[in-house]
Amino acid sequence: MKLTRKEFLLTAAATLAGIAGTKTLSTVKAAADDSTGASTPRWAMAIDFQKCRWDQGCNQCVQSCNEAHNIPDVPQKSHEVKWIWKEQYKSVFPQQSQWIDPALTSHPLMLLCNHCGTPPCTRVCPTGATWKRDDGIVMMDWHRCIGCRYCMAACPYDSRSFDFADPRPDIVNINPAFPTRTKGVVEKCNFCEERLGKGQRPACVEGCREHALIFGDLNDPASQIRSVLRSRYAMQRNQELGTGPAVFYLL
């Protein structure tokens, strides 16, 4: 079978279009909490203060994420790489009421990329190495990132980490299914887009035994996340900046 490069790429492109269409549909069906709408999803997460057991030392969400995504355990704190991490309530919501029940606010909160509606990080990226997908996920292309760290300066959530050195020596157990990163690129939470593509929920959501993490499609009125946002008071970080975070904290 004789095939020139051009012919090959043309055939491939033609077949791709078809696959892409069916694939998107199946992703929507499989991964959304509920599959009433065929429109593009808008992925979001809600974190339930009341269920989170960080006060009892539970760290399962962070561990699941670290293992799934080959997050290095960098010994030097200033060069840390974190996709999910914890921070005290008062530093996450410094302007919010201090008089809330200390049972809710005395233990740390889980932080991650907010997958903003209008992300400041993608706006400043000079190469398109980070961009917002139609489903709201703020993606990173580690092949294209030049490591200028403009996105880190632009992110008002401290969500981005930089590989100050080759991260591989600091990864305890490499998960062969997910790439590691190389030195000199910026990385952050990808809302487990690789798992969503297979119809699975994000690793942190799966890892949380208390079901404190609710993940779903904001465009689907019947989804669990929409129902919980209807009934509970939810806070978003730095909303006044107009970024439109897709991560909600349920009081």
Binding site: L9, A12, T15, I19, K23, R133, M139, E193, G197
Partner: peptide, 26 residues
């Protein structure tokens, strides 16, 4: 001759276009 072009187009499919399946010429 062209595995690098194929891998590069796979890379763009998977990372940038969210296409995770590939149909071969046959």
């Amino acid at each position: 001759a062209s595995h690098m072009q194929l891998l590069s187009s796979w890379r763009n499919d998977a990372v940038r276009r969210g296409v995770h399946k590939f149909r071969s010429p046959d």
